[in-house]
């Protein structure tokens, strides 16, 4: 069930970027999704993300994310019209409520709720793509230069995680073979049985951690400066995508300064396309953001590009 949600190395081009380049790319995507108000801009970001997720073969994982996203969207769409009184097109005059005042549901407030939900979907898609595209070990490796011990602890814990689930099953089986029936008895009796299981788990895993510490010490952990086994190299593809994301960010900042991507919902919602400059700014930003996608497609069909990046 969880297998589809986290990183699997499929040898795809999009998974071969340097972690720093990918992190810059995702940071830019996240900033843009939080800065843009115009639904058209948000929709095009979502479209780009859908193409990228398709590129890393992750449509199934995305479906799960979208289901949660739609649920949260509904909550926002319900809460928003209840508190906002700024909309001009009122579709329902409600009764007066003591804490909130008069309940007037306006079209614009529902619209705003829907656009917030769209933003939520974009953000969730960004992180869905992150889970599918970046190897967490490489990211930790990147951070180990600044915070070696934290990175080591996260890596150790992530590695122990599956072992712990395995241990849980093993200990449960041992207890069952000794005659403990977890399904039998009243609620309190069952809780008692499970608490024994919990204690054994905690004790055995902490014992295990002491053994790990001893083997770390035996391998001279903490005896001097940290040495490094391997580092990933920055390749032309990483420079290209990093440059693309920085250019996209500056283009977006320039556009936002001139009003492209901004959008007023109240009292009456703006037109979706304010003028040709709105579309031009959107196109430029999207082009820079789609550099990894272009490289990935180019790699498939053109040997020259493949040999150069």
């Amino acid at each position: 069930m969880f297998g589809k949600l986290y990183y699997q190395d499929k040898g795809l081009f999009l998974q071969s970027f340097h972690p720093a380049a990918v992190l810059v790319y995702f940071l830019v995507l996240l900033v843009l999704s939080l800065l843009y108000d115009n639904p058209l801009y948000l929709l095009s970001l979502l479209f780009l993300l859908a193409l990228l997720i398709n590129g890393v073969d992750g449509m199934e994982a995305w479906e799960g994310f979208l289901k949660v996203g739609v649920l949260m969207t509904l909550v926002v769409m319900v809460v928003n019209p209840l508190v906002i009184r700024a909309g001009a097109t009122i579709i329902w005059h409600g009764p007066a409520v003591p804490f909130l005042g008069r309940l007037d549901i306006s079209m614009e407030a529902i619209y705003f709720g829907a656009v917030s939900g769209l933003r939520l979907l974009v953000i969730m898609s960004i992180f869905c793509l992150y889970n599918l595209m970046v190897n967490p070990d490489n990211v930790l490796n990147l951070f180990s230069r600044a915070a070696g011990k934290s990175a080591l602890m996260v890596a150790l814990a992530t590695r122990m995680f599956p072992a712990m689930v395995r241990d849980l099953k093993r200990i449960k089986e041992v207890m069952q073979l000794r005659g403990v029936d977890f399904e039998e008895g009243s609620l309190w009796e069952r809780v008692k049985k499970y608490s024994v299981l919990y204690n054994v788990m905690l004790l055995s895993s902490l014992e295990g951690s002491m053994e790990i510490a001893e083997s770390m010490q035996a391998r001279a952990y903490g005896s001097g400066r940290r040495s490094v086994y391997s580092r990933k190299l920055l390749r032309p593809r990483d420079y290209l995508s990093m440059g693309g994301s920085l250019l996209a960010l500056s283009a977006a900042a320039w556009g936002l300064h001139n009003g492209c991507g901004r959008y007023a919902f109240y009292p009456v919602a703006d037109a979706l396309v304010g003028g040709s400059s709105t579309l031009a700014a959107l196109f430029v930003v999207l082009f820079y953001l789609s550099v990894p996608l272009i490289l990935s497609e180019g790699c498939k069909y053109c040997r020259f590009i493949k040999s150069k990046i």
Partner: peptide, 13 residues
């Protein structure tokens, strides 16, 4: 080393 592995184990738990 002991603290590092203990923290990692408890966090995993």
């Amino acid at each position: 080393a002991r603290q590092v592995s203990l923290i990692a184990m408890l966090a995993a738990f």
